[in-house]
Design a protein around this nucleic acid. Structure first.
Length: 493
RNA sequence: CGGGGCGUAGCGCAGCCUGGUUAGCGCGACUGCUUUGGGAGCAGUAGGUCGUUGGUUCGAAUCCAAUCGCCCCGACCA
């Protein structure tokens, strides 16, 4: 898998491989390789001895943890409680909902032996927990007084994917899955929408990425759901990624697992359900949504390290500079900033600059003896590359403000990028051309599966979602029939 | 599951076609000295069942077969 690097002509020699190994592939010409490079070289994760599974390393896990913290608070604020169901599910449970089993059976992993003996009934390692949860809810729910049930769990999931990629599609991954039960259709639908809107705000305000939010077509719907809603973000290669889903389950699982309650009038009714989730795929979403030719670029709100201090010293100034760096770090920490002092003694500052840029740290502080003499430091921004001196007095407040500005700038850049690569198209030829060059195509669709499939076969692009804001009469771009609105077409992860 | 590429030191590679001393190189690691404001230099040290199994041969990293794994494209799929 050798990589060739172009010769820098003025140097008059080949850039040797030892040098180029420090660099990453070109994001514009070799996106998949770029992705692998940044994940590996930034120490986010690596693949494991078991195909398709990954070891998440501390820097990558910290990113996930930051997302988990914000989301978990948001779930609790909206009235949800956490609990935990086991990973192993009796095979027979999975069989009870017809669409569900059809959707998940091909990618299930089974436990067949335990204690040295073959099990009487195989156990499925959960590909999602609807079945075991609804089986249990049947016992937990008796009356309208037990409703709503607003539960969430943080768990690992196993789906035997055929083509795994770190964070984007792994056989084992981490996620949260909310499973709620309600007394009325309206209430369950409201819950579905509350969560998908929560996901949208999270991705916008915390991950700094704009999304399209909308209904899924019947073809793209979750196995067992009546309606699926999703948020779709654009990656730097102009492909779409589904960043979160929220499902209105209707009474499908209640009927499959006989989950009923007595209403105020004493009548038995089936309960209404929802389920919703986001996963470690969000890490991949951030990587591909913000990365550039220099590597990763993390929004301050989730960056494991928000400010890195690179001390610059010689032997005779080491103690002075390092001492000042640690004092500053203490101040920044007190101001709530996630800060790190890069004390690696054997590396030159220049190397560290590039290293932390590749690893996506939003702000870098350079601190040397000359700065200390002037009671200042030099602050460099990852996104703009701009470097400027800042007085040490009041530095914590100044950096808090810069982090906020960076968060905003990153969202705006992502939005500009998405706008530039999103087009309304009104002919099938235009749609095919756009899907070929990459980007989101907003086109009218008659809601027929035949037309949807035609597009998929011709372009490999799919309908990512059907946003409410694109409603309005028109003619289907494929067949010319009446269309209730535009939908988002794109190639997707 | 189909097409293509690849498994040699922690990482990146050469060697294989045309079998033959002790399997090389760069980076990294370790030790020492000099360095340190945009990817440091010199000297020395350690590090390998050549993915695995079987076969051909006096002799296999090299030839043959099988097998496992990784990457890309496609099919399938959150």
């Amino acid at each position: 898998m050798g990589r060739r690097w172009s010769v820098a002509p003025w140097k008059g020699r080949m850039v040797v491989s030892s040098e180029s190994e420090r660099f990453i592939a070109d994001i514009n010409t070799d996106f998949p390789e770029w992705y692998q490079d940044v994940v590996r070289k930034a120490d986010l994760a690596e693949s494991s001895p078991v195909a398709g599974c990954m070891t998440i390393k501390p820097y990558g896990y910290a990113l996930w943890e930051n997302m988990v913290r914000v989301l978990d608070d948001a779930f609790k604020e909206t009235g949800h409680e956490n609990l935990y169901f086991p990973a192993l599910i009796p095979e027979s449970y999975l069989q009870k909902e017809a669409d569900h089993v059809e959707g998940f059976a091909p990618e299930c992993a089974y436990v067949t032996h335990g204690g040295g003996k073959e099990l009487e009934e195989r156990l499925v390692f959960r590909p999602t927990s609807e079945t075991i949860i609804w089986q249990t809810y049947a016992r937990w729910i008796e009356s309208y007084r037990d409703l709503p049930l607003l539960y969430n769990q943080w768990a690992n999931i196993m789906r035997w994917e055929r083509r795994p990629r770190l964070f984007l599609r792994t056989r084992e991954f981490l996620w949260q899955e909310g499973h709620t039960a309600h007394g009325t259709r309206e209430e369950a639908m409201e819950e579905t929408m509350t969560i998908v809107n929560l996901y949208r705000s999270f991705v916008r305000d915390v991950l700094a990425l704009p999304v399209f939010m909308g209904r899924k077509s019947e073809m793209e719907r979750f196995a067992g759901a009546v309606e699926t809603f999703a948020i779709e973000a654009m990656m730097k290669d102009r492909k779409a990624i589904q960043a979160g889903t929220s499902h209105f389950l209707g009474q499908n699982f209640a009927k499959a697992f006989d989950v009923t309650f007595q209403n105020e009038k004493g009548e038995r009714e089936y309960v209404w359900g929802t389920s919703w989730g986001v996963s470690t795929r969000l890490v991949g979403t951030v990587i591909m949504g913000h990365g550039d030719e220099k590597g990763l670029s993390f929004p301050p709100k989730v960056a494991p390290i928000q400010v890195v201090i690179v001390p610059i010293y010689r032997d005779d100034t080491r103690d002075r500079v390092l001492g000042a760096a640690h004092e500053l770090a203490k101040d920044l920490k007190a101001a709530g900033i996630r800060v790190k002092v890069d004390e690696r003694d054997q590396l030159k500052p220049g190397f560290k600059f590039n290293d932390w840029e590749m690893r996506g740290v939003p702000l870098r502080m350079e601190l040397g003896p000359k700065d200390l003499d002037k009671e200042q430091c030099v602050v460099a921004e990852r996104v703009s590359g701009a470097k400027s001196p800042l007085p040490l007095a009041g530095i914590a407040d100044a950096l808090v403000a810069r982090l906020a500005a960076t968060q905003k700038a990153m969202y705006e850049a992502a939005e500009t990028f998405r706008e530039a690569n999103t087009k309304e198209v009104d002919s099938y030829d235009d749609l095919k051309a756009l899907m070929d060059e990459g980007g989101f195509g907003l086109a009218h669709w008659c809601e027929g599966s035949t037309c949807e499939l035609t597009v998929k076969n011709d372009t490999t692009a799919t309908i990512r979602c059907i946003p409410e804001e694109l409603e309005g009469a028109g003619k289907c771009v494929v067949c010319g029939a009446d269309s209730p609105g535009r939908v988002v077409f794109a190639k997707a992860y």
